[in-house]
Amino acid sequence: MSHNPSQLLPSELIDRCIGSKIWVIMKGDKELVGTLRGFDVYVNMVLEDVTEYEITAEGRRITKLDQILLNGNNIAILVPGGSPDPE
């Protein structure tokens, strides 16, 4: 049993992303990329300069948003550093 001194809680990992770009993948065909301003215990998030991607049958619908409070309910995955996709 090796004990890991650098044990990191998931919430601490998100905390380190505050102020930087983050890629949010929702349940269903929706993704958002923006700068993380803060979050709470439910992982509701405040994001800034957000690009929202909705994948539909016709293609990708892109919405730009100034500042949002995103409900944590439908968040599936968080990726620090933003999307690898070019805009």
């Binding site: 919430s11 601490e12 998100i14 905390d15 505050i18 102020g19 301003r37 803060g38 979050f39 709470d40 215990v41 439910y42 509701n44 998030m45 405040v46 500042q67 409070l69």
Partner: peptide, 26 residues
Amino acid sequence: MSSGGEKAASGGGGSVKTPADFLKSI
């Protein structure tokens, strides 16, 4: 759901804006 505001504030920087802060501001 009282949006436990202090949870994310460990950074201590002035730029942190939690969901509770956002709700107040808009």
